[in-house]
Computed example of a mutant assay.
Amino acid sequence: MKHPLPARPAHICVLRLSALGDVCNLVPTVRALQRCWPDARISWIVGRAEHSLLAGLEGVEFVVYDKHSGVAGMRALWRELADTRFDVLLHMQQSIRASLLSLGLKARVRLGYDRERAKDWQTFFTHRRLAPHPRAHVLQSFMDFARALGVEDDRLEWGIPLPDAAIGEAQEFLDGRPALVISPCASPRPRNYRNWTAQGYAAVIDHAWRRHGLTTFLTGGNSDQEREMCRLIRAGVSEAEPVELLGRTSLKGLLALIARARAVIAPDSGPVHMANAMHTPVVGLYATTNPQRAAPWCWREQVVNRYPDAVRHYLHQSPDDIAWGRRVRHEAAMSLITVDDVTERLDALLALGRDGEDDACDPIDGRSLYQESPDA
């Protein structure tokens, strides 16, 4: 075998730059590697925003890369790592940018996705590929890298640290109020179409206050789209004025806020996976993306899933007949989600509390995460 995988790697490189939800889903793989080889060095090449979320992760040496720095940024990172040779590079980012970045890194073997899961010609930049894993969840796909190296203990563990400053930030915003966190918007990218309706969110906010006494905290960035969405939500609320925190929290502060919330509601975006990592009950809203592939893992049975309806209505196909993970790129697809869909899920989650979390996510549970998914 020309490029054998190391039996006991001393220095592992994780190449995953983005995004917030994906890096949250990758942390359990890093933890599994650490359990198997506690003396191994793990260097994680990561984006700037993602690093601010993960900073302080025990046993990980972060190498921060500015995704907008172009060729100059690549060359700077190559110079920084010029004297470093990795036993194995785990190429977990399916993008041409990441593949080009990998060319300047020294590694004895480069492990990437199998042909079906690889994108942007990633297979041309790797020596070895994962075994095929049809219909895998994103979290499972990441864990496949550890399993390919021989890791057997794939229990899920996060332990993303929260500094005192972030905890204080969250406590100041909460001011003792029981909280529902709603992050209404996914990343504002062309033809993303993951956002639900402002009217729907407003009705859920009133319900959460009336039924459960929860104050809603609206979170997100400062984009015009997010500002307009929150303006419409607040205009539609009749009973409970939400607290708007757009652009007012650090990422660690948002993580601390989520950790202390009674529940989180958001579309397929970073906050649902941040909630998952903090073991906070979360209602994910899915119609344009497949929750079997991208739902918050621990709460995947509790998502609002209108994806099959959207596939039939807008793609005129059966979900079984389309490519795994195909998106429904129609601006009206999320309107298939009803207020009752969301409030029923929220009520059920609040009745269960954190004890309702899927057993597969208990870090002391001995079962493999693969035993929890019949589609794996």
Rank of each mutant, 00 (worst) to 15 (best):
H3V: 09
P4T: 04
A10M: 06
V14L: 13
S18G: 08
D22F: 06
C24T: 13
W37E: 06
A40H: 05
V46I: 15
E61P: 01
S69K: 08
A72I: 07
G73F: 14
E80P: 08
E80N: 14
F86T: 04
S95K: 10
R110W: 11
D114M: 11
R117I: 03
A131W: 05
D144K: 15
D144Q: 12
A166N: 09
G168Q: 14
L174F: 15
P188T: 07
Y201A: 12
A202E: 06
I205Q: 00
H212C: 05
L218W: 03
T219F: 11
D224H: 05
Q225N: 01
E226M: 00
E228N: 13
I233K: 09
A235E: 13
P242W: 08
L255N: 12
A256I: 07
R260A: 12
A263S: 12
H273K: 10
M274H: 07
M274Y: 08
H279W: 13
P281M: 07
V283I: 14
P291G: 06
W299E: 11
V303G: 01
V304H: 01
R306P: 02
V311F: 06
V311D: 02
D320Q: 10
H330D: 03
L346E: 08
L349T: 03
A351V: 10
G356M: 10
D358S: 11
I364V: 11
G366W: 04
L369K: 06
A376K: 02
A376Q: 06
